[in-house]
Design a protein around this nucleic acid. Structure first.
Lengths: 339, 339
DNA sequence: GACACATGGGAGAGCGCTCTCCGAAACCTT
DNA sequence: AAGGTTTCGGAGAGCGCTCTCCCATGTGTC
């Protein structure tokens, strides 16, 4: 694309000033006499000038863009990416913070191993100033690769050991405990849970936190089935749970989508929710209040967390100090009708 | 970020050759003696060299990235973006084509007016070599802005008049006709339709095509209610339709999600589908076959279309000719259980 | 053995911008 | 009025790379 538009030089000639002056006006720095400033702006408008970001980056070592990386090691993940409201919430939290600072948000998806490699290479070459990473699996090597490449990085969720970078996270264990205590207090003595893949640390904390809290309360063994965070998989897990033991009177699912799936199965079987079985979800996404019945769920302030994550990165970028800030958020139980 | 890593110069010194030679090896061009090539690669590995994309772009006028722009003029659209399987399918179609060519896909979202302006500025400055745009509203000014800025652009859906650029599209009118004919052939004589916002050209074609086909077949007035492409809005539209006229015996919805919503409403009212009312969706997304009952729907080969759109852009980029290619796809009816 | 010709690798210009100097002019201050 | 100080704008180096020249070797031909 020999799309060579006008350069600073052209604008300078047009305005009858030097390159440096045009640069000053364009970047709004220092004191340039008002009439000269006006002349320059007019010249910019007349020529249709747009600064060449490559040339600018070459000297400033900044691109003005920040990458929001969605990564997963499992196959076919765009399907999940664009069906789980979770990601939309992350994006919703990130965008305003970046926009306010006039930083361009750039979404990058790492859906496979080669994609991950290509993505890291892109960032190593200076495709963006920093990365906000939402990894979905514990084994995901991406955060380590990025941090290893020296790229300012902040994660949604704690990094695996050995990877030093900023992060935000929810106290999932506490969230699971809140759910357990709510169910217990409501007289439920035979709770089960629908967990998520073992590879998601988040999921493990929710599972362990739930069983640990129930054990502490004096409950017996808690039946566990696993889903894949999708509504469909939640339905299936509920089916297996029910087949194993129709005596259970409560179900805690690791996210709202799976909780919905569980409700759907129960509805199909004519089992009353919450009359016969109480259901608690996790996240408090839109999926929670549009469910039938509306879900009681553990609220994860995703947007807030994403905004905090973004601010952490911007601070890192501003100060240049690679201090790895972090922030842990507390969950809250949102009681609706399902439990 | 004074993140200055090793430069070509450093690698050259390390390998005992000139800058030019290192550049040749890194870019895999021309004939470099095998032993020298090896020495250079070793030096690259030792120094951890990564080419500076800004410097490279400055001379090549290429970034090696292509933007996939998701744009909408309505408010709060990330919610829809990350809940409608449609976008995931677009991404699924685009990624492989780009990956194969080692072009970095970069997702950009234009969720508001300022965001759109910032995005255009970013691309004008050379943030990417070209743009694949998925506009959701007819009034969306983005395609025009991009084309006006001289950026190679290909749209999903025909451009509004006055905007000259490549595009791919589905023959929505034909799709709606197929649906109408299917329902008519099945003996449905009182069909209604759930359309989408007037601002979506796609939606208008589906609505007009449906009513036109039915008129041609000899049907009377077709009741119309509008949704917003979401399952929830489809449910509500069905409710209004039913309230207006419980005599209708078929419903054609402008996408699968709304068709699902319609089914849900009918199920709530105890109306048999397809026994009493037949339902036809549009898109054949995952939402179609996971619905209860599985939806009869008009298949839109989104992935294929997205791949074609990408190839159109790459060709444009390769040849430099701003010939505005385009491709129209034919819909197919997928008959399942709902009609 | 003299010439033409391919082949491998270096020198150096220059992509478009920022930013540090510096000099000229205007303004105080005493 | 002489010196000091501030304000404004220009000159020019240089960011890290690519790519065109060009020269120094090989290799083939008669």
């Amino acid at each position: 694309m020999g799309n060579r538009g006008p350069t600073l030089e052209d604008v300078a000639r047009e305005a009858g000033v030097s390159r440096a002056t045009v640069s000053r006006v364009v970047n709004g720095v220092r004191n340039v006499a008002p009439e000269i400033q006006e002349a320059v702006l007019a010249a910019v408008a007349r020529t249709g000038y747009a600064p060449n970001q490559a040339a600018r980056s070459l000297v400033t070592r900044r691109t003005g863009a920040v990458a929001l990386v969605l990564s997963a090691t499992g196959g076919s993940f765009t399907a999940r990416l664009f069906s789980d409201p979770f990601f939309g919430r992350v994006v919703d939290g990130v965008l305003p913070v970046l926009r306010e600072r006039a930083v361009q948000p750039v979404l990058l998806v790492a859906e496979s191993e080669p994609a991950r490699a290509q993505l890291v290479e892109y960032l190593r070459r200076g495709g963006a100033d920093g990365a906000l990473v939402v990894p979905l699996d514990e084994e995901d090597p991406l955060p380590g690769m990025l941090v290893g490449a020296g790229l300012p990085t902040v994660l949604f969720g704690r990094p695996r050991s050995g990877v030093r970078c900023g992060w935000v996270d929810l106290d999932n264990t506490a969230g699971a405990r809140i759910a357990a205590e709510h169910l217990w207090a409501a007289g439920r003595r035979r709770p089960a849970t629908i967990a998520a893949p073992v590879t998601a640390p988040t999921a493990r904390e929710r599972l362990d936190g739930f069983t640990a809290a129930l054990t502490a309360l004096g409950a017996g063994e808690v039946p566990v089935e696993r889903g894949r965070f999708t509504e469909e998989s939640g339905r299936d897990a509920m089916a297996r749970l029910w087949e194993r033991d129709p005596g259970i009177d409560a179900v805690f699912a690791a996210n709202d989508l799976m909780a919905r799936g569980a409700c759907r199965y129960l509805a199909e079987r004519g089992v009353a929710v919450p009359g016969r079985v109480a259901v608690v979800g996790f996240d408090d996404s839109v999926a929670a209040h549009t469910a039938a019945p509306p879900l009681t769920t553990v609220r994860q302030p995703v947007e807030e967390m994403a905004a905090a994550m973004t601010r952490l990165l911007l601070t890192h970028l501003d100060t240049g100090t690679p201090e790895t800030g972090s922030k842990l958020f507390e969950p809250v139980l949102v009681v609706r009708e399902s439990a």
